[in-house]
Amino acid sequence: MLTLIQWIVFLVYALTTFFYWYDFITEKNGFEKKGFYTFAIAVLSHLGLLVYFIYDIGRLPIATVSEALGTFVWITASLYFLLELRWKERSHGVLILSVILILLGNSNLTFNISTEINPILYDVKFEIHVFAMLLGYSGFALSFIASILHLILAREIQKKEQGLFYRRLPSLAYFERISAAAINVGLLFTGIGFVLGYYFAAQVWNFKIYTDPKIIMVIVTWLIYFVHFIGRRMGKIRGQRAALISVIGFCLILFSFLIISTLVPGAHQFG
């Protein structure tokens, strides 16, 4: 049942992605309603899926990489949906939805309900920790997309090859603004999440930070984004340079999320 709903949600996202790409390539003007409605349905049905999961299993869907990925996708999609409502600018949609689609597909394919879940994960404190982390990562993801688009647009401007992206995308300044705001949100929530996690973990296990590769990766990426933040404040890191750092930061997150979590053993192995 759960798997079926998961794939239905995936299909709605796929349909939304198709509409967004279609509008992007055919250069339709304005706020096209079709894509907007299917996007709303996708986000709501995904929320329904999460609620069903919580009701059925009795905990938040964040225990395994696959579950966390699904939740992460929903947070990112909702954040972007709100952003779109606010800014009435849909050109990011094509990339964000494409990334979402890939991640969700990945999550659905690797999904299996493990019966041997560490009881720690039924604890609300840890749920808050994971949720804050996921929210922070969503911020980084949005910044990543905005930065990629920034780089594409800046490249088209510099190479003087004004193509499809030049015509369809808003300005460099716009992407810079969005990316910076998203990183600020990301820094705040991952910061909170990290401190909470460390505090609670210290109560449960007796462990040292540097033994868990995932925690080390989180610290590294957090520092990268923090450099981004300070550099921006000082006016040293701007434009393409800022965008590049954001992209690198997010690649590291993906690396730690998808590769290290599954391959290297450490404190974050619960399954």
Binding site: L153, I157, Y166, S171, L172, A173, Y174
Partner: peptide, 8 residues
């Protein structure tokens, strides 16, 4: 138009 693509 170009300037707008840069500065908004």
């Amino acid at each position: 138009e170009l300037a707008q693509k840069i500065y908004d």
